[in-house]
Write a protein that binds this DNA or RNA. Structure first.
Lengths: 348, 348
DNA sequence: CGCGCCTATGACAACGTTGTCCAGGTTCTA
DNA sequence: TAGAACCTGGACAACGTTGTCATAGGCGCG
């Protein structure tokens, strides 16, 4: 067995190199395929042979090279998640939920933050496709996803979350943004408010547009004519939100209540309201940690980020099972949680 | 050119298959390597040839298979991050910071949550190594990382964050948990407190142990004998923390101040304190969103999660550059932010 | 006792890419 | 004008794994 001997007598692998199945096979004095069988738990290996192989694996510190495996098998057992910003408390739980589902299916999760930049979203998505992720969960930043068409055709499972896909048909899991916002605003109206402000994100973002639509619907249902100065749509950086809030709280007919259309906006609005002499009612979209400990507690329209992620991921894996056919649009309900700030009466 | 013709006349690839460089080459009527050159922007291709290749790529929807590339090149341009729970607001920014650094180096980030389970941490780490990530940023759950030795030897760059590695030497980036806790507790003492409670995580977690050590040091510096009933160490689920807090707030000599040793604990302690008739001072480790809006504002010892992540990731890539030799232990300072809750006087 | 079948094992090709090396053609120089 | 230097492009092997198929024993049965 000169081949085996030569191999076994080799100097230790240099720093940076790794043993392969071939090395293990040589050391154990068996064939390459037998090692593969042991590593993959395939049947047809004598316990004695298996022991020898295991020993060699142990001794060499062998670890299967999944790149080669992927190349051969075509499946990577990994999925990609593209979201806006992992540092946003809304996306942490969502990401975690996706990860849990992936884990249950033996897959790893690759995260990417688009920073709300459509180009970066596309770049990320295509990079993930080049890695041959089995599927993609996308919280879209852009509104044109035709660039994904070849990928989807090639078999990359795709689910959009939080916002719908643009210009392609695909599975989508959303919160009921319209209904939630409408209920939240209606709640303010029910407590006597008529001059209600709306501060939201850029209208090109689907959730922002839907929530605005909900606001308008609630106002219309109550027969209230909305004034332009009550609405502010744009970036949600603290400076802009602060200016917007201050503007609608002053002037000839200031608002008596504000509907803030996402968690980042709510936080800034809270800071502004804390400085105001009069009590202004507030309902926020998205729940916020500690919202119950503030005085008054913050009334919110809560969406279940984890459920969004879980639902999307499960759907993704059902696509991969092949047990799914037509793309669907799933809408998860929101929940109004009253804690005080939304029940304050109007105060001039 | 019969070969080219045969290829080009093929039926459209079936669903799930993908064009390869070979297909592109056939369609463009050039050699395989020429396509590779175009795809990688290598020199030595006529503009005219390049145009033809680009056209074929476009027409076929070709995307390079990175698995094959990785197999050939040995580098995956991806790094792994293992943390405890992505849904924890402390880890979101940390993960995001790591991602930004990775992105700057053209690498993708694969996240995994260990759920504070050492086995799961190991399982994840080894799975990532099997994928041949170039490096690993680990927030350890376990205290024995010898399982990583072969990987590190094989060239996987490794940096530990937030908690040190166990039983191996490796780069570590930490917050000054000891100093931060000591300062926080000293702050309470400076405001007249002597019976100060400490509620922290399981002492097997390094940060928890260090913060406890800081508490003890501050108390000893002030000549205060600590009573066992003032300290609670264990899981940080709300139920346990609540019981612990309630216990130290009642009895013959209740504490007049509490030092809560992480963000999760702080949140629960706040809820308990809100129900108490008397004012109890509080300093928390970790900053908390909205801490400034509560009345009183919450005084905290803040650590910079993003800086931790950034520092660790930068160090990782310097390992990969080869510009690093000896493992180092880096400690980042914490910052005491006074907002009111830590400045309350003792109240019997 | 011989035949066929079953089991354990190994040889070999293939996955899609990149690095090496060589061939053929063009341009410049002596 | 011949030869050298250069430039473009392609053939081929290799990366480490898995699927296919072949082979060599061992065993039961007629």
């Amino acid at each position: 067995m000169p081949e085996t001997t030569r191999r076994a007598d080799r100097p230790a692998p240099r720093y940076g190199s790794r043993p392969t199945m071939k090395d293990v096979a040589a050391r154990a004095g068996v064939g390459l395929k037998t090692v593969s069988r042991v590593v993959n738990g395939e049947p047809g290996v004598t316990p004695e042979t298996e022991r020898r192989v295991q020993e060699a694996i142990e001794a060499l510190g062998f670890r299967r090279n999944d790149s080669a495996r992927v190349l051969r098998k075509g499946r990577t057992s990994s999925i990609g998640l593209i979201l806006e910003d992992l540092a946003d408390p809304f996306y942490g739980p969502l990401s975690r939920a996706v990860e849990e589902v992936a884990r249950a299916h033996g897959a790893l999760l690759i995260n990417g933050s688009s920073a709300e930049d459509p180009e970066r979203e596309q770049e990320l998505a295509l990079a993930l496709c080049a890695r041959r992720v089995d599927g993609l969960v996308v919280i879209p930043a852009g509104d044109d996803h035709r660039y994904l068409e070849p990928e989807i055709k090639a078999g990359v499972a795709t689910v959009f979350v939080d916002r719908p896909a643009g210009r392609i048909t695909a599975d989508v899991v959303l919160s009921d943004n319209f209904g939630g916002a409408r209920d939240g605003v209606a709640h303010l109206i029910a407590h006597g408010h008529r001059r209600i402000g709306f501060i939201g994100d850029m209208p090109r973002i689907h959730t922002a547009a839907e929530r605005l639509r909900g606001y308008r619907a609630a106002m219309e249902d109550a027969g209230i004519a909305v004034e332009d100065s009550w609405m502010s749509l744009g970036a949600t950086d603290p400076e802009r939100v602060r200016r917007a809030a201050e503007a609608m709280l002053t002037g000839p007919a200031p608002v008596t209540a504000i509907f803030s259309a996402n968690n980042r906006v709510t936080v800034t609005v809270l800071r502004v309201l804390a400085e105001q002499p009069r009590r202004v009612a507030l309902v926020g979209f998205d729940d916020i940690e500690l919202a119950d400990l503030l005085r008054p507690g913050i009334t919110v329209v809560a969406q279940d980020a984890a459920a969004l992620g879980r639902t999307a991921a499960e759907r993704l894996f059902r696509q991969l099972d092949g047990s799914l056919v037509a793309p669907e649009r799933i809408e998860l309900p929101t929940r109004l949680i009253t804690r005080g700030s939304g029940e304050l009466p109007p105060e001039e």
